[in-house]
Nucleic acid binder design. Structure first.
Lengths: 204, 204
DNA sequence: GTCTATAACCTGATAGAC
DNA sequence: GTCTATCAGGTTATAGAC
């Protein structure tokens, strides 16, 4: 049996570079990332990175579009399902989101910070008008609480779910949460947030 | 009357540089900021920046320490006051925080993203042990809900309050919120969040 | 496709005149 | 204190050999 090449083990060179780019970009951000770091992590030479992706910026844009979809793309299918009732939707969104974030803890901070000043990017990826209206989630909220803009509840759900991941580096640095306890805390929140949100919706 | 110099109008040169640094660093982050941009914004020469602050990093650290205190420093006095009862504390924290954030909308995203991987910084500034225990806010929460870790409620308050500011660039880019409507929305939340939090604390 | 060597550029920092 | 000019180092991107 012939000895396997790196490519056979880890996938195509192009994909290896992209995977390295995902890791380095999300950890350090665009400006602080050096293409040399990506090349080294991918186990290839710097010239090869440019051979495949032409430039740092083009490589970044590919990664960024993926990450944006990863962060926002999951919301729509759940929120717009007509057959699921409001309470169930809240549970599903929170549970799905938390699972995804536990697998990608630095995703939100990366996307949201790299998004400052780059307005064009998002609008290409997401069908905006459809999100705001026609999402049954919004209608369901309006039926229950016509006196409060549905966007408030969406922000509350996202805030309570996503914020711990954004603040984790700070909370960890300050010693409020040891990194080991974090996942336990987040798992507790998976059950608690839906309870809280339902109470919020009823609150007068 | 003699013509006024720039310094007389805008404050000392050192302070003008620092103010320019605050703006540029918070908008673009450390890595993406060029000292030339700061110098230009301050209306001085690049050499002068180094004359006053020795290096980009030293200037950044000064700004960063300020911003950390601005973001976290306000919490303790309110949360640890023994004479204020829980409900009132919640109202005060939310109202004070929102006012501060409206005046510094990109503060949270800046601090939280620059904090990745820099653990030392925070611990110097904040007396951590005192925060976690001995804060009457924590005790008050434990009395009402001994079955839930107080940190959950702290995260909920901060999440609901801070998250809109972190996500605003994204929400704006995607067209969910026009920038003009943002402040109105935030002002609504100033009254709503305390109501929601109180409902959350009662929820079973 | 992959490498080495290098070009072209940019950025932080300093030297030295005023 | 403030400026101009420049250095030293690092970074992206490409040329050219294999």
């Amino acid at each position: 049996m012939a000895k396997k090449t790196k490519t056979e083990i880890d996938g195509s060179t192009e994909e290896r570079i992209k995977e390295a780019a995902r890791i380095v970009f999300t950890q350090k951000g665009y400006a602080a990332t050096r293409t040399r770091d990506i090349a080294e992590k991918a186990g290839i030479n710097l010239a090869l990175l440019n051979y495949y992706f032409r430039s740092k910026e083009k490589l970044f844009n590919q990664v960024m579009l993926e990450k944006i979809q990863q962060l926002f793309g999951m919301l729509l299918p759940v929120l717009s399902d007509e057959t699921t009732k409001l309470e169930k939707k809240i549970e599903m969104v929170v549970a799905n989101y938390i699972d995804m974030l536990l697998a990608n803890p630095d995703l939100p901070l990366f996307v949201l910070s790299e998004l400052r000043g780059q307005k064009e990017e998002l609008q290409k990826v997401l069908p905006i008008e459809k999100i705001i209206q026609n999402i049954s989630f919004i209608k369901q909220l309006q039926e229950k609480r016509p006196d409060i803009q549905p966007i408030h509840f969406l922000m509350n759900i996202l805030g309570m779910t996503v914020f711990p991941f954004i603040a984790m580096p700070a909370f960890d640095a300050v010693g409020i949460i040891k990194k080991n306890d974090f996942e336990k805390l987040i798992q507790e929140r998976k059950a608690l947030i839906p309870i809280w949100v339902k109470a919020m919706i009823k609150a007068k």
